[in-house]
Write a protein that binds this DNA or RNA. Structure first.
Lengths: 201, 201, 201, 201
DNA sequence: AATGAATGAGAGTTCATTCAT
DNA sequence: TATGAATGAACTCTCATTCAT
């Protein structure tokens, strides 16, 4: 238990925090509970994280990094921006379906915080949103997507994904998320499709 | 100061709660602060509301009712479901722009709560979401919208509106919300448009 | 509703207080509850009583007065101090059985109070205890009771009655109080009986 | 300061609670006051006790256990049930005289509580009352006591002891408790004495 | 590095009492 | 005289954070 020990314990605390925040919400969760779940002493948390807020921040950071990396890999081999967008939507919800607990933190608890924390959390989401925006920009640049404001569309798509995931989580995961992913992909791909070429006979 | 007095004071407390919750977040806000803002004693709050949770619930209820009524009136004279949807999107964000503080509560604080409260809040949103869904169902029924799953699309549109509004609020209202509304309207109207008829010469 | 009105309302409040204090305990009971039970406004209580403490004090006072008067009448026609004592014991528990709610206040709630209030309450009990003591003193003077310290015996008898009544009330009035009264009467009459004269042939 | 430290602090809090409850009454006493008296932080109380109610419960429990053990030892070497009863009465009041503060809690505050707490407290008294009842039952069985209902007599004796102790405490311990104990012992021993043997010359 | 007992500020809520009507 | 809405002090209990071991 040296260097690896440290990293492992940090990870264990983050895992514990993820579970506890997901099940109780960030505010209702207590540091003591996270400590118990991680099988460390209360004080130990503070050797790895500055505060409860910091714990959430680092948790979201870790999840976002993993999500970004994974999404990157999924999108890399795809050439067409339209297909990229479609893959983005489907893969995002696939991840939610695969790790609902992690998703819970990113989706639901993310906004549970005072304004300061909220701003910091938004900052952490940026790389992910940037990926989405780049797809849109490229689609527009290549002329395969309508020239709508990429930032507005990015927010729209992200909000849609978020809301669908939230509904799925809140309703106890009772509907088919993959099917919803298809619907969303069609909706947004259709919404961004260049319509003029079709009108030409 | 008889019947009007009571209702006015209740409204004053709701106004105060709206401001305080918006600026600090529901959890960080204290009942004492709401009382101070409303210029009543701490205990007075409890003559009008059962608890802090109830205060949020009633606040969201009031705002939702107003929003539903207003939206109803806007949509009533419109016949075409596609135009109705377009109007829904534009008017929703128009309201956000007009009363950002109220929106803050509906959009941001709405999810700040333990799971129990969250469920009750979701319940309060239902009539509004139902309106949106009905537009989609009618559009599909009349054959002017693609037969996508109305529930999925409803979530998508609502999430998109929410996220755009949230971004606008968090960034200090620095971009043009009306313009974004146009973009969203185009995006979703396009995404729902029946494409096949066009391909027929 | 003039002079009689006042007295009647005062009595109504006392009745209400009796019921509420009996069912909840003096501390747990609220003035608002008493007011509701008496069908008067909260503030009205304070037109008739100085404070919540005063309300209890006046309630006990009224009950003690009634109890004293009734006991007085019961004992008046009895000549023999031993029979008087026996009647006192039986009648005391008879009253408890007849009006358990009033008894509850006198027995149980009587001690629920800070030390100041407690002293004042003890003061109110004095006339009743004095009656008992006088019986004992006369019995001793006449040589029909053993010359035990009348004050000590008075406390003993009163404590015994109190405890038996308390047990009866706490156990949900499930045993026969009259039978217990007989037992107590025998016990104390026996305990106070002059034994030596009898042994002389 | 390991195992002993914990137990000692718990004991210190109980001592403090005993003093504070005795001087102010359970209801009027505040947890903050107990904490101050015990020289610990407010929150520390809750590391050792679940609630203010629990604090009283555990306090009574500890006192009752000690009382039972001590009484057990006193009675063990005594054979004759009549003498046992006499010793019980004298020793009970001796204990009150020796530790008036502890007695205050057991006697006075014991009934200061809502009905739920009251029932739990009554439960804690049972072993002690059972000891008393057993003495009576044995006395009756051996034919050295009159066959009065042991439960009724038990209540009577306990109530008498309670009341005498209460009076002594409320009057500022101004009369001789030991003397009263003698009187009570004579009273009850006399009351329970088999009278028939006396008639034999 | 790790512990977990201790801290104490601060939360929501209650309720005896007052006073304008 | 009666009302009951309003008050605000005071309560119990929680929990993020610290620090002696």
């Amino acid at each position: 238990m040296r260097e690896t020990g440290r990293a492992e314990k940090r990870a264990r605390i983050l895992e514990a925090a993820s579970r506890v925040f997901a099940s109780k919400g960030f505010f209702a969760a207590t540091v003591a509970e996270v400590a118990r779940e991680a099988k460390v002493a209360d004080g130990t948390i503070y050797l790895y994280f500055r505060s409860k807020d910091d714990l959430l921040l680092r948790l979201v950071e870790a999840r976002m990094n993993a999500l970004c990396r994974a999404m990157q890999e999924v999108l890399a081999p795809i050439e067409d921006p339209v297909e990229k967008l479609s893959a983005f939507i489907r893969y995002h919800l696939e991840m939610v379906e695969r790790s609902p607990e992690e998703a819970q933190v990113l989706i639901v608890e993310l906004r549970q915080s005072g304004p300061d924390l909220k701003r910091e959390l938004a900052e952490l989401m940026r790389p992910y949103l940037a990926m989405l925006q780049r797809i849109l920009e490229e689609g527009i640049a290549r002329g395969v997507m309508r020239p709508l404001d990429p930032r507005a569309v990015r927010h729209a798509i992200f909000g849609a994904l978020d809301e669908v995931a939230l509904a799925w989580l809140l309703r106890g995961r009772r509907f088919d998320l993959a099917q919803n992913a298809e619907q969303l992909a069609e909706l947004f791909v259709g919404g961004l499709a260049q319509t003029s070429p079709r009108s030409t006979p």
